[in-house]
Every structure is written in C-alpha cells, then in structure tokens.
Design a binder for these strands. Structure first.
Lengths: 181, 181
DNA sequence: GTCTATAACGTGATAGAC
DNA sequence: GTCTATCACGTTATAGAC
C-alpha cells in the first residue's frame, strides 16, 4: 500500500496565495503551508526544491493575474483611452493585491526567460504603439506610484492628482513624439 | 571617572548600517548586531525596544543621507538643471545604496511625523517650484525607475533612454503648466 | 515517489541574576 | 547595562516507513 499524494504543486501554490492574501506575505512559511495543507513542512520539499522556488512560481502566477486584469480592462480600447484603462487597472491591481504585486516586481530576479514577465512588457509595448522608452517610463511611473502609495507616501487628497498629472505628462509626451494615438 | 558604556544607539545604528552595506539586508539580525558589537543580542533591547525600532531609526538615517546627496548635487543650481541634477543624484543613490534606499521608501510606514521624510518631500517640492502634483509624479517616476532597474527589469541598452524620456516628459509638462523654470 | 519524524540551527524576544 | 538561560518559532536537511 502506497501513500496517496496529499498535495501537488498547484495545491501548494493555491494555498500559498490564500495565505498571502488573507494574512500577508510575512505569514507565508513552510510550516504554515504544511499546516494548512494538513502535512509536514518537510513534505513540501518533495514538490519544490526550496522556499525560493515556491516564491518564483508565485511570482509567475501573480504576473499572469496582473496581465489578465490589464487585458480585461483594455478590451476593445485603443489609443489614449486604452492607456488610461491600462494605467488604472495596473494601479488597481497593485493596491488591492499588495503582496502579490510585490512578487511581480521584486521576485523573479531575471524574468527575461519567464514568459509571464515578457508578456507583461509586451502588453505595455503594444498599448504604447511599440515605443520602448515610453513604455518603460510609463511602467516606472505606475510602479513608483503604486509603491509609494502603498507605503503611505502620498496624502490621500493629493494622490489622485499626482496620478493624473504623471499619466497625462507621459501621454502628452507620447503624442508630441509623433506616435499618434 | 566614568565607565564608558559598551554601546549606545549611535554605535548600534552605525554597526547595523555597516552590516547592511557589506552583507545585505538579510544579514542584519539582533544576534549579528550583538556579535559585531561584542555583546549579547539581549543587551540591544536596552537601547531599542525591538528590531522594528532599529529599522525605523535606520530608515530615518538613510533618508538623511539621501537628502544630503540630493542637496549636494543641486548646490547652486535652479530650474531645469536643478531638476536634472536632483533626478540623477536620486537614481545614483538608489542604485548604489540599494539596501539603504529600500529603507527610505518602504520602512517608516507613516513618515508624516518623521522630520527626514518631510524634509525629503519638501526638497522635491522646492525644486519643482511648489508644484505638489508634479513633485509627486517625479518622485513616483524616479522611485519606480530605480526599483525596476534594481531588479533587472530594464535592458541595459534601454535604461538610459527610459530615464531621459520619463524625466523630460515630466519636466516638459511642468513648463507647459506655466510653472516657469 | 510520497509522506512522517526528528534533529540542528538561527531568529526575535523575555525574565531574572549580577 | 550586561549577562545567562530560556522560549517559541521558522527553516532546512536527513533517515526511514509505506
């Protein structure tokens, strides 16, 4: 008689996501994972080589979720409205899924090979008509805004103003550089 | 004749900074601190209530260092050149003092009361002629750029281009909004 | 291959003796 | 102020049952 598998990679990642969402990033540990799954922490090492591997897999999953949210928000839109939708959906995701969002931007140290990371960049690039530097600048602004906002660096009264200002500055610059919207 | 104490708040913070700079953020622990200072970890609790208090103090110190670097770079400059100097000095500090910079932007959850955090914001505001939203947008862009750059999100070939593009977009927008430089 | 049990280690933190 | 001793916890690795 053999041991039926109590878990698999998907179950582990799903549980990890649940823990992160409900109790925050710091609550995610191998023991907590095993506890929730009904097994020992050491058993997890048969599915992932180490904690870092779980984090990287979570990062990929989170990137996929973010991309999905962005695509959904941009559905059927082009030009300026599409950029605005992208920006708002990005910030919305980042602020409402703080722990997950952190995984997207900090975790996969080299995401060049990761399909999710590339897909995210490509979607930015596509929405900005292939303007690489503008896409990078927009991404930088959005990430910075989300990051500073999350740590309470903006007054709630000024936050929206800052968002609109930065976004319009980048969009205006995009138009001026003759990349017609 | 007095007995010099083995340590004090300044010595602890200085040692903590040294550890972070040489071995990274993860190497900073109460035990490692005590080890380097030549005493037990438990003794540190007579100078700081807990680890978090040390981190907050470090964040304030790091903010001060950043502000100093910015002021030094902007010395004698006004208008556009001053903004460029500010931006370059900011990125330079962030990329060359990664662990310290992380403390500045993530650690003091509410820096409203912290004098260093306010001074940093005020310097941005002053350099941008009191334009609150532009100052916020610039800060967001710079922080986002530094953060994404640090985690290898930009190609080295495109990074400079992205930086110039975002900066010029915000500066141009500032001029257009009639805040003459 | 999957799981259990256990051990060794590092961590933040506290209590009490000197 | 500093020490020793101790706690509970998370991480990691190994040995072994099925």
């Amino acid at each position: 008689m053999s041991f039926p598998p109590k878990t698999d990679r998907e179950a582990i990642l799903g549980t990890a996501l649940a823990i992160i969402e409900t109790q925050g990033w710091s609550a995610l540990s191998m023991r907590a994972l095993g506890r929730t799954l009904g097994l020992r922490a050491s058993s997890l090492y048969h599915h992932f080589p180490d904690r870092n591997a779980i984090e990287e897999a979570l990062g990929s999953k989170a990137s996929g979720s973010l991309l999905l949210a962005l695509k959904s928000a941009c559905l059927g839109l082009i030009g300026g409205p599409r950029i605005h939708a992208l920006a708002e959906a990005y910030i919305d995701f980042a602020l409402n899924n703080q722990a997950l969002y952190n995984l997207v931007t900090t975790l996969p140290r080299s995401d060049e090979n990761k399909p999710e990371g590339k897909a995210l960049r490509d979607f930015f690039l596509e929405t900005l008509n292939g303007d690489t530097s503008a896409a990078g600048a927009l991404w930088a602004f959005l990430h910075g805004y989300a990051s500073l906002h999350s740590s309470g660096r903006f007054d709630t009264t000024n936050a929206t103003e800052v968002f609109e200002r930065g976004l319009s500055a980048i969009v205006t610059d995009l138009v001026k550089k003759k990349n017609i919207l």
